[in-house]
């Protein structure tokens, strides 16, 4: 039985006791899947499992507080579920986690770039076939094959958790561990190679086109303040309505700092950005800092306390300045 069929079987069994089960289904064209909310048995057959399940369904869980729901997760998504449990933002008894081994998902922006290089428009995608290590997209009658390693999401290129870290129903064979590819952190490496003033210019360049839609925030499973974000509060007045680079960047700093020690690097902020702004680099840098300082990784252990919610009398890696 395929992973997909096994998932469907398990979901059908559990569905009567659940408000809904969140997964993925086919979207408006061949290149896009879209989140699916299974509320009846007929919906179960719409479920998809594979490289186009780019979204992180954990983002919806806190909105179902008090109701028992199911969620289908990839390995990376399961870390968000664990982080939500760590922070007691969802109740373990109210979530049923379905999962299967994940062989990686595509980054639609990379597919778009590949198609553009072949003179094609991703907006004309007709067919997508994923076969082991190759993704073949047919657009405007022309098929373009691209190695999965070149169009996979960055997170997949150095995935430590292709299998869920926590699941109630894990079906099929586990997926193999991947060897971290050097390309996985090209964005961070590029920033590291810049001087500090160049980085200022980098953010000036990119944030200029931000439209302040807050898709980065709303797609983030850890942004649980939802309708009460300080970005849109007038009192305190953290951000003004002016569309300056200062205000736009300040929001990214707010988002990143509020994720310090909590971010599981699912990459939804950057994937959701309609303007292709590389906002994930900020979180990657912060996660590296958290790892260096506190030897900690978010969302792998339900019992772990996030590093900024605890302290040591003598810190191991903080060297304070002597004057």
């Amino acid at each position: 039985m395929s992973r997909l069929d096994a998932l469907k079987t398990r979901i059908k069994e559990a569905l009567p006791g659940l408000e809904c089960v969140i997964g993925w289904q086919k979207g408006y064209d061949a290149l896009h899947n879209t989140p699916l909310f299974i509320r009846g048995e007929a919906d179960v057959d719409k479920l998809e499992w594979g490289a186009l399940n780019v979204h992180n369904p954990a983002v919806y869980l806190p909105s179902f507080a008090g109701k028992k729901v199911g969620v289908v997760v990839k390995g990376c998504d399961s870390r968000s579920v664990v982080e939500l449990l760590q922070e007691k933002l969802i109740d373990r008894d109210n979530v049923v986690i379905f999962s299967a081994g994940c062989d990686g998902v595509v980054d639609i922006a990379k597919v778009r770039a590949k198609l553009a290089a072949a003179g094609l428009n991703a907006g004309n995608a007709e067919k997508v076939a994923v076969d082991g290590k190759t993704v073949t997209v047919t657009a405007a009658g022309k098929a373009v094959s691209m190695p999965m390693a070149e169009v996979a999401a960055d997170k997949c290129l150095r995935c430590q958790f292709p299998n869920a870290v926590l699941a109630d129903a894990f079906v099929g064979d586990p997926a193999p561990q991947v060897q971290a590819a050097p390309a996985a952190d090209a964005d961070l490496a590029a920033l590291d190679a810049m001087s500090v003033p160049e980085r200022m210019a980098f953010w000036r360049y990119h944030m200029d086109r931000c439209i302040r839609c807050y898709a980065c925030r709303n797609a983030c499973p850890m942004c649980v303040c939802r309708d009460h974000c300080i970005a849109q509060s007038r009192e305190p007045h953290w951000l003004s309505q002016e569309d300056s680079v200062t205000e736009k960047l300040m929001f990214q700093v707010v988002h990143a700092m509020h994720l310090a020690g909590r971010c599981t690097e699912c990459g939804e902020c950057q994937r959701a950005c309609p303007m292709d702004i590389p906002v994930l680099a900020l979180k990657k840098h912060l996660n590296r800092t958290i790892h260096d300082l506190f030897d900690y990784q978010a969302g792998v252990d339900v019992a772990a306390i996030p590093p900024l919610l605890q302290f040591k009398l003598e810190e191991d890696n903080i060297k304070e300045r002597s004057w």
Binding site: V196, M200, A201, W203, A260, L282, H285
Partner: peptide, 8 residues
């Protein structure tokens, strides 16, 4: 440690 990535 976060400031330098912002260009500060």
């Amino acid at each position: 440690r976060f400031l330098p990535i912002l260009g500060i």
